[in-house]
Amino acid sequence: MEWIIYVSVAIIAVSFAFLVYYLIRTLVAMKATMISLSNTVESLEKQVDSVTKESKELIHKTNILADDMQRKSDALNSVFHAAKDLGDSFQRINLSVKKVSESVSRRADEQSDQIAQAVKWGNVALQFWEKWRAKKSQMDNEKQEEK
């Protein structure tokens, strides 16, 4: 029965040796994985640092651009105010012209009867003048025929 104890101890020893062998292989594989993971993390840190630096530069440039746009917008405000003032001036001029036009139209309507009579008298005078001229011409022709 003693030999069973020896065989059992031998099986335990062999089992322990296999266990240690596979445990060492697992630990070596885990070490390689950890080294790879460490390299990946370092690379990722470098990329994050690069992206952070570029982001800061982009934000800085964006702030400069926004300030420039604000200055230009402020400069254009005076142009828009001037355009508004010009538009207001044109509107006042249009109102003045409209008032003058309405005044002239009203006066013309008020004096239209007088103007119509003046035109009639002008026509009558023109007719008399034409008749007088025709008679004078006829008389001149008769005098020339007598000679």
Rank of each mutant, 00 (worst) to 15 (best):
E2D: 04
I5L: 15
A10T: 01
A10R: 02
V14I: 04
F16E: 02
F16V: 06
F18D: 05
Y21K: 05
Y21L: 09
R25M: 11
V28H: 04
M30Y: 06
K31D: 06
M34H: 13
I35E: 03
S36P: 03
N39H: 07
T40L: 13
V41N: 02
S43I: 07
S43D: 06
S43K: 11
L44Y: 06
L44P: 00
E45L: 05
S55F: 13
S55P: 03
K56H: 12
E57D: 05
I59D: 08
N63W: 01
N63K: 13
L65Y: 01
A66P: 01
A66R: 11
A66M: 07
D67E: 03
D67Q: 01
D68G: 03
Q70A: 10
S73R: 10
F80R: 04
F80L: 04
L86A: 09
D88T: 09
D88W: 09
S89M: 10
Q91R: 14
N94P: 02
K98R: 07
K98I: 06
K99Q: 10
S103C: 04
S103R: 12
S103G: 03
V104G: 00
S105V: 01
S105Y: 04
S105Q: 05
A108Q: 05
Q111G: 01
S112W: 00
S112P: 00
D113Y: 03
D113W: 04
I115A: 04
A116H: 00
A116Q: 03
V119F: 00
G122C: 02
N123V: 03
V124I: 08
L126W: 09
Q127I: 12
Q127T: 14
F128M: 14
E130C: 13
K131Y: 08
K135A: 13
K136A: 11
K136T: 12
K136L: 10
S137P: 04
D140N: 10
K143E: 13
K143W: 15
Q144V: 10
Q144N: 11
Q144L: 11
K147V: 09
